[in-house]
C-alpha cells in the first residue's frame, strides 16, 4: 500500500493498464468510470480503487475498495462487481431465484444454458433481478463461487 505522497501510485505502471484493459474488455467498464479515482497497489497483487487525493498520513490501513488481485491474470473482486454492477454490460450470468440463494450461501451452481450463451469461460457478474450479487468463475458450464466467506448469507427474503 502506498503510504506517502499525494498522487496515485500503482507500480509497475503496466499493472494499472492491465487492470483497466481487463475491466473494459471483460465487463465493459470503461476507463472514464475511474477518472475521479486512483488505483493503489498493496501486497500479494491486491489492487484498490480509492480517492485520487490521499493526504500524507501515517497508519493508513486501507485506501478505497479492493477491486482485483493481479497475480499473472486479473481476478476481479465481488466488492467491485457489487459496487459497479449496474455499469457492467457483458459477461453477466442472470441467476434464477434458487441459484441466487445457492450463490449467496457460497456454493457453486450450474446456470441454465440460455443464461450463459455467448459467454466465454472466465470471471462473470452473477446477477438476480437486476441486483449484482458478486463474482463467479464460469468454467465448463458451472459457475464457481468466488464469494468471500465473510459475505456468505442464508437468504430468507429474495
Amino acid at each position: 500500500m502506498r503510504r506517502k505522497g499525494t498522487s496515485e501510485v500503482v507500480s509497475p505502471e503496466g499493472t494499472k493498464e492491465k487492470v483497466f484493459s481487463y475491466l473494459e474488455e471483460r465487463f465493459g467498464l470503461g476507463r472514464s468510470l475511474f477518472d475521479d479515482y486512483g488505483l493503489y497497489m498493496a501486497s500479494k497483487g491486491r489492487i484498490y480503487l480509492g480517492p485520487r487525493r490521499v493526504p500524507d498520513l501515517p497508519k493508513i490501513a486501507t485506501i478505497g475498495l479492493l477491486v482485483a488481485r493481479v497475480t499473472g491474470a486479473v481476478k476481479p473482486s465481488t466488492n467491485l462487481l457489487q459496487a459497479l454492477g449496474k455499469q457492467v454490460t457483458r459477461n453477466i450470468v442472470d441467476a434464477t431465484r434458487e441459484q441466487a440463494i445457492v450463490y449467496a450461501r457460497g456454493t457453486d451452481f450450474k446456470p441454465d444454458s440460455s443464461a450463459v450463451s455467448g459467454i466465454t469461460d472466465g470471471y462473470v457478474l452473477v446477477r438476480y433481478e437486476g441486483a449484482s450479487l458478486g463474482c463467479g468463475l464460469l468454467q465448463k458450464g458451472m459457475v464457481k463461487n468466488m464469494l468471500p466467506k465473510a459475505k456468505r448469507l442464508e437468504l430468507k427474503f429474495i
Binding site: 479515482y37 480503487l49 480509492g50 480517492p51 490521499v54 493526504p55 498520513l57 501515517p58 497508519k59 493508513i60 490501513a61 486501507t62 485506501i63 478505497g64 475498495l65 466488492n79 457489487q82 459496487a83 459497479l84
Partner: peptide, 8 residues
C-alpha cells in the same frame, strides 16, 4: 461500495 474512503 464505498470508494472515497481512506481508513486510518
Amino acid at each position: 461500495g464505498v470508494l472515497n474512503a481512506v481508513i486510518t
